[in-house]
Amino acid sequence: MKHNILDIKGLKVGQAQNTEAKTGVTVVIAEKGAVCGVDVRGAAPGTRETDLLNPINAMERVQAVVLSGGSAFGLEAASGVMDYLEEKGIGFDVGVTKVPIVPSAVLFDLGYGDAFVRPDKAMGRAACEAASDEILMEGDYGAGCGATVGKLNGMEHCCNSGIGSWAETTENGITVAALIAVNAFGDVWENGKIIAGTKNPDGTFANTEEGVIKAASSLSFGGKNTTIGIIATNVKLTKAQAT
Rank of each mutant, 00 (worst) to 15 (best):
E168C: 04
P100D: 06
A167N: 06
W166H: 09
C128W: 03
I194W: 04
L107V: 08
P201R: 11
I174T: 13
P103H: 11
N153Q: 10
A178E: 05
P201N: 10
T175I: 06
G154N: 09
G186P: 05
G111D: 12
F185D: 05
F116A: 08
A184L: 09
A181R: 00
T170F: 01
V99A: 04
F116V: 08
E168T: 11
A127C: 03
A143V: 10
V99S: 00
L136A: 07
I194K: 08
E129Q: 15
G192Y: 10
E156Y: 01
V94Y: 11
V106P: 00
E134F: 01
P201I: 13
N172A: 09
L136I: 12
K193P: 00
A115S: 13
V102Y: 09
D120M: 09
T198M: 02
E129V: 10
G197W: 09
A196P: 03
V117K: 13
T175V: 06
D93P: 03
L107I: 08
G164K: 09
N191Q: 12
P119F: 02
P119G: 07
F116N: 15
I195A: 04
A147N: 05
R125A: 14
D114W: 01
F185H: 03
C159Q: 06
A196L: 14
D114A: 12
N172W: 01
C158P: 00
G150C: 05
I135L: 14
A147C: 13
V117N: 06
C158H: 14
V176P: 00
A122W: 03
H157R: 15
V188N: 02
S165E: 03
A130V: 04
P119Y: 04
V94Q: 01
L110I: 14
N191D: 15
V106I: 15
V176G: 07
G162S: 10
I174C: 06
G144H: 06
A181L: 01
A105W: 04
E156F: 04
V176L: 13
A105T: 12
A105E: 08
A196I: 12
V117C: 11
A126G: 01
E168F: 11
C158N: 14
V99W: 02
D187E: 09
A115M: 14
